[in-house]
Design a protein around this nucleic acid. Structure first.
Lengths: 152, 152
DNA sequence: GTGCATTCCTTGCGAGCACAACTAAGTTAC
DNA sequence: GTAACTTAGTTGTGCTCGCAAGGAATGCAC
């Protein structure tokens, strides 16, 4: 059957991809640990910093972070007790909780971001040509399309 | 500073990449659950099936799977109790345990593999040209090089 | 209004993993 | 041969997360 197994080129791409993902996430987790942050924490701070009023509804935040509601609740627990994020009630819909960046959270992100960007460059983009980077954007846009096309 | 932030193209590549990884792993985990396997379990079965005598030392297996010793111990617990893998002592060095594929493990892998490959095609390679796949192999070979160059 | 479904978030529970500490076995120095 | 070191694997503990269940608030049908 022609499509049963991966071709040599596909297998090479797939295995390099998988191994890169595993190794890189571990390395970048390690990089961020110097700031007392996990990659999950960092993502929260980034998303909040980009949002209007530096705050988001829990459900929206869970959605963009691809996290279950309970997962986000627990992740926020850590950030709240570290003083980087506040939980803010919404008077107009009392089911809703906002996660809001605190001044300390803003400072922490400003401290960590340059180092994180340097990590991404050093571990990921280094040695890639501009054309390769563009192609990478194209490729993973296609992949994202595949994934949204067949959700389950 | 020129290198402080990511360029537009880099940011596009990076975000598409990260989001693809997150969504795809969740989807493929879900695909494999039909066979009662996690992706971690599946990786173990694949590695053992490719090894001489369909067995590997725990430490070598942990290394290729990028797993801590304790992580591998616990993962194997599940596979052993499911009857897919055996723990085999090594008489010539009694510190060593082999993880060995059982006949049931071999059958399980043969059942799951075609479906898994189909998932990879559908969720990842679909819509990519042959040139893009080759480029993907090149790119992530470079990335792997970056990662082994600065291990910590 | 009253009943029912829906939305949003949290909590109980269990799975998977890493780190550190430990046991056991093999290796090296002397 | 014995002490010190290294290697291999397991166990205790804690963290993160998902699923299922629950509770509170809202919206809708009537």
């Amino acid at each position: 059957m022609a499509t049963k197994w991966l071709s040599v080129n596909e297998m090479r791409a797939w295995r390099n991809f998988i191994e890169s993902v595993n190794t890189m996430t571990a390395a970048m987790e390690n990089d961020l640990a110097r700031f007392g942050l996990t990659m999950g924490d960092y993502e929260v701070l980034v998303r909040l910093s980009e949002a209007d009023d530096e705050r988001m509804r829990m459900c929206d935040l869970a959605s963009v972070l691809q996290l279950s509601p309970s997962g986000l609740t627990r992740r926020l627990d850590g950030l709240v007790s570290a003083g980087l994020v506040d939980r803010v009630a919404n008077p107009s819909d009392r089911r809703v909780m906002f996660a809001a960046l605190t001044p300390r959270g803003r400072v922490k992100l400003a401290e960590a971001a340059p180092d994180h960007v340097a990590s991404v460059r050093k571990r990921f983009f280094k040695g890639l040509t501009r054309d390769q980077i563009d192609e990478l954007g194209n490729i993973f846009e296609t992949v994202r399309g595949n994934l949204t096309a067949c959700p389950q």
